[in-house]
Write a protein that binds this DNA or RNA. Structure first.
Lengths: 341, 341
DNA sequence: CTTGCGTTTGCAACCGTATGCAAAACGGAG
DNA sequence: CTCCGTTTTGCATACGGTTGCAAACGCAAG
């Protein structure tokens, strides 16, 4: 591979001239640019990002930490985030992790070693030791779809509390009497806020939870939780809010194919995220849509403000979701008719 | 951030000593290692990957190019690949692209600029100009789930031809009379091979295709294709092979919810991939499972053989799939009973 | 033809690490 | 204690760029 020195020699100019031609905003005459670009093309020279990173201290790489890729919400988010960053000249380095804390520390250390310009953490919590390392290294972090009590990080979420409350109203106005809640992993802020909002919404109508089980954001655990909640020996809920679509689908299949219950005639099901599968007609999930595009845009903005701008304080962004009414739950009068998409 | 020089100074040793302590296999006395590690810990020093990459010419980064993340097969593969590479000390840089060729060229150029040690291309074809650039740069490429007539690249696929043929046998022995095929994107080798295998299997039984439509590997296009294939004004197939699960689900929903047909009573549906959703009980897709784990392992092996070993020739690996029998198609006598998972 | 100012160019130092080579230290045998 | 073969260590250079600074240049005004 040709280096800038090769190009310089062949073009009869200094190496720094070559560098400047490939540095946006540097001072170069048209004649020089012409000449250099010509010989660069001849040698098919392209600047070496690694060397550039070394001197500038900026790598144009964003580290992305993800735990679940089986919950379709994340692949979609990852895809959009990657594209948005690509469009800005950044690249994404992927890191998979489990929820276990020790693992995450290793993983994030690995990220920092690569001198990333920023980190996006999706669906995962960061230890505060790690937080120290990041601030110390001057690497901005954005929590995507999570918040933490630590206020050092920027975060981008949808209004989980408001969404939960709205779903409570929806079920109450639908005339449901025995309303259950199927929780996600209790370490997650999404779970806590959605449940809190849901309870608040019920309370506002003078109601409470009829049943509660935890599905841990996992398909199989959610199945088991549904079986417990709908055990044959007692009266079962006539409506449930499942904390995300991924679990809601597991729940619906158990209800229909194991318990012999009809949805929505016997049980209404609502959930959160609006992943693509929610629209599949076998499920037709009434779900609170996360504003993924805006969340991605806000994430990129927050990163750029820190990296390229001079912003120094973390942002905490909460964006409103939208209720997508489909067929998995009885529809109260006055609410939207089922949407097609 | 502390550099190796800082550590060296504080420990009273040379910078190269520090470097050697962090270079596996270098010659260092125990006393030296001890001393250096201690002060390194004190300064919480970690070697800078960028600088290391610059001198060694190896970045320990693998570029991963993906087009679709909405077909769940790919997120799953990406997850496993990322983990497998992480386990070997490599990291994955993600690149999203569309199928359009010009775009891919830009994207891969971006990858090469980062001095990646290897490239995995999933679900996408590479132009031969690009191929030149990669060989020239000495960067090994593995095509994942695709093959190309270019034999310069390694490739890892499942036996699409054999899988298609097996599904044909399955449908024929199930006693189906009018067998249709719903194709994927015709530019893809997966599509071509599965169709060829399927046709061969039918031919072996003295049969042919009753209907053919193209769904382009896209949800909405597959829906439209299904509508055409099952138009009311003519006799419809009593079985179809849909080229992947992603489209098969679209097809099943159209059959059941638009055409009022029962699956499998009126129409048998089989497909390919065995994505997680295929096991969902609302679909229960009989599908040819891709051996994703082995494919990932083979991909990593092929890369490592080129990067760390001295292998120079491309590998072309084809792994056998496995038929997972569920409920979406009539089951011929003598074939496995429905599997649960 | 000077002078002066703004632009373009080259020089040289630096980013943080790896590594070939020679010097130094070590250790065992005689 | 000396000598010699092995480690172990340090020195110096290289990797491929960026960038502050000063020299060179271009051009218009005096």
């Amino acid at each position: 591979m040709a280096s800038s020195i090769d190009v310089a020699r062949l073009a009869g100019v200094s190496q720094s001239a070559v560098s400047r031609v490939f540095t946006p905003g540097a001072s170069v005459s048209d004649r020089m640019r012409e000449k250099v670009l010509a010989t660069a093309r001849a040698l098919n020279y392209r600047p070496n990002f690694v060397a550039r990173s070394l001197t500038t201290g900026r790598s144009r790489i964003i580290g992305l930490v993800v735990a679940y890729l089986d919950n379709q919400y994340y692949p979609v988010a990852v895809e959009r985030l990657t594209k948005a960053l690509q469009a800005r000249g950044y690249h994404v380095m992927m890191f998979m992790t489990e929820q276990t804390a020790t693992n995450i520390d290793d993983v994030v250390s690995g990220i920092l070693d690569h001198q990333v310009d920023g980190i996006v953490v999706a669906s995962v919590a960061m230890s505060s030791k790690l937080a120290d390392r990041c601030t110390e290294a001057g690497v901005p972090v954005v929590l995507f779809n999570r918040i933490q009590s630590e206020d050092r990080f920027s975060s981008v979420i949808s209004d989980n509390f408001g969404g939960g409350r709205l779903l409570a109203r929806f079920l109450v106005e639908g005339g449901h009497q025995r309303i259950g809640y199927l929780a996600g992993w209790e370490g997650a802020s999404t779970q806590r806020d959605r449940e809190a909002g849901f309870r608040a919404g019920l309370a506002a109508a003078g109601r409470g939870l009829f049943a509660w089980e935890c599905g841990n954001y996992t398909f199989s655990v959610a199945e088991a939780a549904t079986r417990r909640m709908f055990a044959a020996d007692r009266e079962h809920p006539d409506a449930i809010f499942v904390c995300n679509d991924h679990m809601a689908i597991a729940a619906m299949d158990v209800l229909r194919h194991e318990q012999g219950l009809r949805v929505p005639e016997d049980v209404s099901v609502v959930s959160y995220d609006d992943v693509p599968q929610a629209a599949w007609r076998s499920y037709g999930l009434t779900s609170l849509r996360q504003p993924t595009d805006s969340m991605v845009a806000a994430t990129v903005d927050a990163l750029m403000a820190r990296i390229e701008g001079s912003e120094t304080d973390p942002r905490r962004i909460s964006l409103p979701g939208e209720l997508i009414v489909r067929t998995s739950a009885r529809i109260p009068a006055g609410w939207d008719a089922p949407t097609q998409s």
